[in-house]
């Protein structure tokens, strides 16, 4: 018989995986820009590092959702819950906001972060403004996290 638990785990995998991909792409883009700037002026390392780390959070948010799914499935409690296919699909759906918003916002936040690093190269004293531009993108990952969390955690899946 088809178990819904598999669907739920696929949801967790998507949330962790896609958001992780988004963050990796974002962080690598920002990192490439940062390496260029630091090669010219090593003293800008800390400022560039902060900007590079900003797109890293999507991966963490995805990880949180993946973990909450595992918590709901009672994986840590020993015997894994056996969901109906419908519940499993529902949980998979609940994971999608985080997965999708994490993937795309991570990539796009990385682009803004890279531009922010270019800003720091020219005017290091304005680094906080670059940070503010960059976290504007993150809002949507946070909203995805919020909806995924509420939808995974609150209902009772059977």
């Amino acid at each position: 018989m088809l178990s819904g638990t598999a669907f739920a785990l696929i949801g967790a995998a998507l949330a962790v995986g896609l958001a992780g991909i988004g963050s990796s792409i974002g962080v690598s883009k920002a990192g490439q820009a940062a390496a260029g700037v630091v090669s010219e002026d090593p003293s800008k390392f800390m400022k560039c590092l902060i900007l590079q780390l900003l797109p890293a959070t999507q991966g963490l948010y995805g990880f949180v959702i993946g973990f909450v799914v595992m918590l709901k499935l009672n994986i840590f409690g020993g015997s894994m819950a056996d969901l109906t296919p419908y519940s499993g699909l529902a949980m998979l759906g609940a994971c999608l906001p985080m997965a999708i918003s994490g993937l795309l916002s991570g990539i796009y936040q990385g682009k803004v972060a890279a531009s922010g690093i270019a800003l720091v190269a020219k005017r290091p004293e304005e680094n906080i403004k670059a940070v503010v531009f960059t976290i504007m993108v993150e809002t949507y990952a946070l909203l995805g996290l919020l909806i995924s969390f509420l939808a995974v955690y609150l209902p009772t899946y059977a």
Partner: peptide
């Protein structure tokens, strides 16, 4: 709502 979201992340990652 980011207040709540970030509150959640700290707690859950700590738990993991």
């Amino acid at each position: 709502s980011r207040l709540f979201s970030l509150c959640l992340t700290t707690g859950i990652i700590g738990m993991v």
